[in-house]
Amino acid sequence: MKVITAENLTKKFGSFTAVDHISFEVEQGEIFGFLGANGAGKTTAMRMLCGLSKPTSGKGMVAGFEISKNPEKIKANIGYMSQKFSMYEDLKVWENIRLFAGIYGVPDKEISHRTDELLKNLQFEGQKDALVKSLPLGWKQKLAFSVAIVHEPKIVFLDEPTGGVDPAARRQFWELIYQAADRGITVFVTTHYMDEAEYCNRVSIMVDGRIDALNSPQNLKQQYDAANMDEVFHRLARGAKRNSD
């Protein structure tokens, strides 16, 4: 079953075309890597799929709803974690979980149960009453991811979720992603780290607003005769005309 389909999705800001007629499909339960250099249009594309940004032209279906017509329906069925860490820093860990669970319509009685479960899974039980701003970045990211899927959405969108942390923390984060995918949650993730690209089922590589390659990491490496994803990326990105920001 396809949970995301994009057909010639385009976003223009004035005369600048940030996303240029992209088309792709994502299967349910898949971990889909969305790669590209800075300024390639990854975040803009993702914002359109989440209903945060209106497409200039083209069509897109997310979780069974058309993105131009039913953005609010989409929002009820997805989770989202942005690159700018965005939980409430002045709220405690459990208060953040309660807030977002409540917003997504998790029944009040079930919230405390889910909170305990979530914290246990993260081995965060001791931090329940800690203010979010007091946590280290790696912990915040794991917590933000868990909160983004607290309502068991069909899809979770992650925009550079592991920026700025060490490899060990990134590995732990990816374990959480696998757990979510095992439960049937589709993961749509943008990243800069090519080792993370290897963890994805399929990756797409954006160059100058277009998708220049889309396949499994294995096939891409074969296709471009490369030893790893890093090389694949460099071959493709070399053709980029836009300056990275």
Binding site: L52, E72, A76, K84, M87
Partner: peptide, 10 residues
């Protein structure tokens, strides 16, 4: 940045 997080909720 919490505004964007709220905007992506229903």
């Amino acid at each position: 940045g919490t505004m964007e997080q709220i905007n992506v909720t229903p």
